[in-house]
């Protein structure tokens, strides 16, 4: 019961000023964890889609879901961890690419379905997308000293199948 499981919660909110702070505030005020959070408007400009990764036992997640639903601006939400869902995160990574490293890094990027977006005589900037674990694995595979900068978007996701979340 007390297992801290990772949950991916996807929220459809009114696209109002302060909507994001309401969610962020709720988590800090009630002492819940946020691992990552992404937010952007949807095809309907009056709505924002916010995806967050949190963890906690069943009871905590139940409270998180209820408290989020209680926010007036929240239209609907779904715990994607409870369904079959596609998860994606984007990572941009700048690495050293000198001498033998150049070929090595290019091969590694290809193995992970990455794209090299920018090249200098000493660096590559690589784009990778996938589940967070895949991005972690890439980072583990790259020589530590070679990493110059890492930027991650946080996870976002969508349910598989015909189900869709809309207002």
């Amino acid at each position: 019961m007390n297992n801290n499981n990772r949950h991916l919660i996807s929220i459809l909110m009114e696209n109002e000023a302060g909507a994001l702070s309401r969610v962020a505030n709720l988590f800090s005020a009630r002492g819940y964890n946020i691992e990552s959070l992404t937010v952007a408007p949807t095809d309907d400009p009056t709505l924002s889609r916010l995806t967050l990764v949190t963890n906690g036992n069943e009871q905590i997640i139940e409270q998180i879901v209820k408290q989020l639903n209680k926010l007036i601006d929240v239209v609907k939400l779904v715990d994607l961890s409870e369904t079959d869902a596609i998860e994606r995160e984007l990572m941009l990574i700048k690495t050293k690419a000198v001498g033998e490293q150049r070929a090595e890094m290019k091969r590694l990027a290809e193995i992970f379905d990455g794209h090299i977006l920018d090249v200098t005589d000493a660096t590559y900037t690589i784009e990778l997308t996938g589940r967070s674990e895949k991005l972690d694995n890439f980072l583990n595979a790259v020589e530590k000293d070679a990493v110059l900068e890492v930027v991650r978007s946080g996870t976002t996701g969508i349910a598989r199948g015909q189900k869709s979340l809309h207002a």
């Binding site: 009871q59 139940e62 409270q63 209820k66 408290q67 639903n69 209680k70």
Partner: peptide, 8 residues
């Protein structure tokens, strides 16, 4: 009336 009060 408040679901978040239940089982809190």
């Amino acid at each position: 009336i408040d679901p978040s009060s239940i089982s809190k």
